[in-house]
Write a protein that binds this DNA or RNA. Sequence first.
DNA 1: GTGCTTGCAAATTCTTTGCAACTTT
DNA 2: AAAGTTGCAAAGAATTTGCAAGCAC
Lengths: 143, 143
Amino acid sequence: MITQQWVQSLSNNGCRVTKPRCVILDIIARSERPLTPQEIHALAAAKSPGIGLVTVYRTIDKLEEMEMVERVHHTGQCQTIFRRAVGHKHLLICTQCGRSVHFEGLEFEKEFQLIAQKHGFCITSHWLQLSGLCADCQKGKNT
Amino acid sequence: MITQQWVQSLSNNGCRVTKPRCVILDIIARSERPLTPQEIHALAAAKSPGIGLVTVYRTIDKLEEMEMVERVHHTGQCQTIFRRAVGHKHLLICTQCGRSVHFEGLEFEKEFQLIAQKHGFCITSHWLQLSGLCADCQKGKNT
DNA sequence: GTGCTTGCAAATTCTTTGCAACTTT
DNA sequence: AAAGTTGCAAAGAATTTGCAAGCAC
């Protein structure tokens, strides 16, 4: 389970493993789709009343810093949070239900470099996200 | 000049061609890099004192609606505005000076579809941006 | 006990809305 | 003259900060 790995990492980095933090971690780790800070807060508060939105923001910052989550562009904003994949992967997002899947994209890397060279640029990072409808939403299951 | 085309389009769509609007249009059309609403406002106010930030927001909305500009992910946010390219192009951005260039990316489209199919998704759009250092910034010119 | 965390309240920052005055056509 | 626009002030929304109390180790 991802949650346990994250708790371990936190601990290894000298961070305290507190109740609110665990609840938030677990919600993000288990989510199949990117969540906004507000959504995370709502889910966290449901599980464990009293958790503040501020704690959610601070936990997200910490997780981002430790490269366990990343910001994703979804529903018009780029502040939704999704767990980060191991290795170099990109995201495939369902515009309707939000379900997201990581995919390998190594084939592209070389092409990106070539394109950049043509313009005199030296690439340091890239942002690639595909949006569409997942199998269920195509069938109208989540309507 | 892009500005003139835009003014023409506005006019054709029944929009009034006002002074503030022209100033804002011109700033965005000429910019080599994505600008935040605040930056646009600062530049606009410098050229023509009295222009309100609200007008900038409203003009951006209109331009976006008419597909003349797009939101770009830059410097940690995705609300910076950059002119939109004709046809299907992607963006190459300098993380240091912000200079941006559009490039063709048709070769990727088919691959995107294939990847999506493997996961049962049907792609409707994608978001691809390459970030790095432009030629000048690599040489330390803009430091 | 020490020092990291938490939650509250307040402060900021960014964006949107209501409205009367003002332009463009 | 009619209708779209503008800028101001105010309202909202989202995020950050200060701080005393509370936990984890």
